[in-house]
Design a protein around this nucleic acid. Structure first.
Length: 461
RNA sequence: GGUACUCUGGCAGAACGGUUAUGCGUGAGCCUGCAAAGCUUAUACAAGGGGGUUCGACUCCCUCGGGUACCUCCA
């Protein structure tokens, strides 16, 4: 498998014959997660599901930043403990991503639970003279890490001119960043240098090395994390271990809205919760996978609507497959195999989910063609269904299961309708159809028989 | 200003030197008691502008221009 690496700017080979270790920078928990977060996490969720479908073992670690100025500010504003804020939004995070059908990470380490490790790490940095104690905190000495800037392709001396933060006179160099901030405000911990809390970047260095070891396979996150966050992580980690940090840096493009980045600071976010209510998980997933992961995608209601159309086709395909019982069958094993190979190939070539989706829609189309031609039988239907299920599991698409009772009820209603249709009592037949529609069941009248599909309820439809 | 990414038909979005991408939309037809869904078929002056390399360029090079992101809050 090949993946574009931000650090070397070329595609790197990922050896998927052995265990893959992935670290994804998660969210700072001070507010609801939005579609931008969803995109990044869905991309990695599909990557992981793909690898696991190939029997590759995956260690997937995603952190929560649960100590941060923003959390503290919010807590102060709401007059509650910082902990309360972070635990509330962690809970909400799981609620959202559960519903988005994102598989739980192997591990969700939190900064606050790794203070000891962080302190040990800082000790090492100070011991190596890569960090120093100043008035307001402990800082990493950027100038001592000669490769600083290699990820974001920035030159240290150019960083200062554009700097929008006030220059802190107590630092040796304006480019230096805090690994420990002195503070008495809770949450604060004792350290050999004074009471305070960790800087933002240090937790990821510490926790990724702790859980994945040195030189793990993929370090991911949104593109906006390249600088300073990932740049600083590299500096700290490599300064500490003298070994290359992550093998591949994989960055997911931003989600924009009306051409502008969706972000909490701009206040133009669409929360996952809100979009889930209106569109449901499958459409969000299709939308998030609709473009190459490295590029920008623009959020709009029109795009969601387009993905709703696609989702309806997938649903139709699925229900055609479970009802398949035509006598005349066309041999499909070869064409389906081709589609499967195409799907895999697309993902292995820099994780091109859009191309992979194209392959999937070929399968959908092929199924619907066979169904229209009354050539979808039990055997070829089963072949297609197997591939359909493999692909939709990787993409994380789910069609809700139905109870036997419900199915029986639907079947009976259809039988009644058929009777009325034969008797040309169309009013009564249509009434039954309306009744079924109310249950979100849509009928598909083929030449020889009628099948049904249970549509996902989509509020925005 | 620097750096990175990006610019493809009405819209979304692929192909990394040589085929119609694909999907949405739209038109026509088929199917149907009527719908819905689906199928068939048609539809695109497309490549940000201008140069160049080449038998051949969306793809490589140069140049000019637009957009977005980052330049110490951010997925």
């Amino acid at each position: 498998m090949n993946l574009q690496d931000t650090l070397t700017t070329v595609e790197q080979e990922l050896d998927i014959t052995k265990k893959i270790k992935i670290y994804l920078c998660g969210v700072t928990v001070y507010d609801e997660s939005h579609i931008g977060h969803a995109r990044t996490i869905i991309v990695f969720d599909v990557l992981r599901k793909y690898l696991e479908s190939k029997k590759v073992e995956v260690d997937f670690v995603q952190n929560f930043t649960d100590v941060d100025d923003k959390i503290i500010n919010r807590a102060t504003k709401e007059n509650v403990a910082a902990e309360e804020i972070s635990s509330k939004y962690i809970e909400n995070y799981f609620r959202d991503f559960e519903e988005l059908n994102v598989k739980r990470a192997t591990n969700y380490p939190k900064a606050t639970e790794h203070i000891e490790d962080i302190i040990e790490f800082i000790k090492k940095l100070i011991g190596k003279e890569m960090a120093y104690v100043a008035k307001n905190g402990v800082y990493f000495a950027v100038s001592k890490f000669s490769e600083y800037g290699k990820l974001s392709k920035k030159k240290i001396d150019e960083l200062q001119s554009g700097s929008r933060i006030q220059i802190d006179e107590t630092k040796n160099d304006p480019a230096d960043f805090a690994v420990w901030k002195f503070s008495d405000i809770n949450p604060a911990w004792d350290s050999p240098w004074g009471k305070g809390r960790p800087g933002w970047h240090i937790e990821c260095s510490v926790m990724s090395l702790k859980y994945l070891g040195e030189n793990f396979d993929i370090h991911g996150g949104g593109r906006d994390l390249i600088f300073p966050h990932h740049e600083n992580e590299i500096a700290q980690s490599e300064a500490c271990t003298n070994l290359p940090f992550a093998k591949i840096w994989m960055h997911v493009g931003m989600v924009t809205i009306s051409g502008e980045k969706m972000s909490k600071s701009l206040g133009n976010t669409k929360s996952i919760k809100q979009v889930l209510e209106n569109w449901g998980p499958n459409i969000i997933r299709l939308f998030c996978l609709s473009g190459h992961y490295s590029k920008v995608i623009d959020y709009s209601e029109d795009m969601l609507k387009e993905n709703l159309t696609k989702w309806r086709q997938v649903e139709t395909c699925y229900f055609e497959l479970i009802h398949a019982n035509n006598k005349n069958q066309e041999n499909v094993s070869e064409s389906i195999q081709k589609i499967g190979i195409e799907f895999d190939k697309s993902l292995e070539d820099d994780f091109n989910t859009h191309l992979a989706l194209s392959a999937f829609f070929q399968l959908v189309k092929e199924t619907n063609r066979l169904a229209a031609a009354e050539k979808l039988g039990k055997e070829n239907g089963a072949i297609i269904k197997k591939e359909f299920e493999r692909i939709s599991a990787i993409l994380g698409l789910t069609i809700p299961e139905m109870s036997q009772n419900e199915i029986q009820e639907i079947d009976e209603l259809i039988l009644n309708r058929e009777k009325f249709r034969e008797e040309k009592q169309f009013d009564k037949a249509d009434k039954i159809r309306d009744e079924l529609n109310k249950m979100n069941v849509e009928l598909i009248d083929h030449k020889e028989r009628t099948i049904w599909m249970k549509k996902e309820k989509i509020k925005s439809e």
